[in-house]
Amino acid sequence: MADTILVVVEQREGKLNRVSWETITAGQAIAAATGWTLEAAVVGSGAASIAAEVAGKKVAKVYAIESAKLEPYTPDAFAAALKQFLTSKQPKLVLMPHTYQVRDFVPKLATAMGRTVISDCIGFKHEGGKLVFTRQMFQGKLAADVSFTSGAPWFVTFQNGSFRGDKAEAGASTAPVETVSVDIADGVIRNKPQEVFKEAKQAVDLTQAEVIVAVGRGIKEQKNIEIAKQLADALGGDLAASRPICDSGWLPMDRQIGSSGQTVAPKLYLALGISGAIQHIVGMKGSRAIIAVNKDSEAPIFEIADYAIVGNLFDIVPPLIEEVKKAKG
């Protein structure tokens, strides 16, 4: 029998998390390279409607793993449900998106099965019959190809944006959906989650900004933020920041860009002293143009920059403010 790849898509409150399409695309690519069979699963109460949506894609089968105890999400219930399911199905490879929810339960699940997760991958290679997964190391400064040295199932999570969700192929016909009920014993679930909420409404909305000047830890001290502010003012733009700047209280949280901040897509994003960690990049990679100033020529931010200036921001920014002012007359 051929080996199986299982993609576990993510649902939240009965809706498919769109990032799951990227994982389906990844699964289809690995299936094409290896000749393995691709299947998918949805976990949750009321997973059936999402399973039907996934069944439209090119997958051999979709499982809806159901139990009333899966709502609301808890790591205990998700790990227990998937462990039961995977132990009976024995897929070779289990793929999931590297979401906050997945990183909350998948290391527990793998450990409970005596297995391991290669987490936060950005791609895969299949060379000479060997499957390796590529992931960023040292916050994107280096990359590593990582292989499994243990038995199946192999767990892999993929970083947001690593595959194109819109490239997930549709199937020639709808895949069969099988509902699987799992038993989760009393006492398994120890956490009691409350309602999900958003902090008081943000005072600053950067999503409509045309020009953003963003500062990172390269700005060194709170008082230096002033020069970034001057540049933003000269350009008629808004000031934003990476997370450490907001963590330090140098700028308010509502100016934070990234996975736990705002997602922006201005005409121009000027990054000053930002290294380009993935959690920052997901919040600004949709910008029309990115200019990065960083003293480290190997900073990952340069991989997504349209214009790169390798240098000390304290040398570059003051003359730039003057030139911009001159140009504006």
Binding site: G140, A144, D145, V146, S150
Partner: peptide, 15 residues
């Protein structure tokens, strides 16, 4: 160890 780093390298630029 259940997993192994086969190779560490400087990432290729795509953009």
């Amino acid at each position: 160890n259940l997993q192994k780093i086969e190779k560490l390298y400087i990432p290729q630029k795509t953009k």
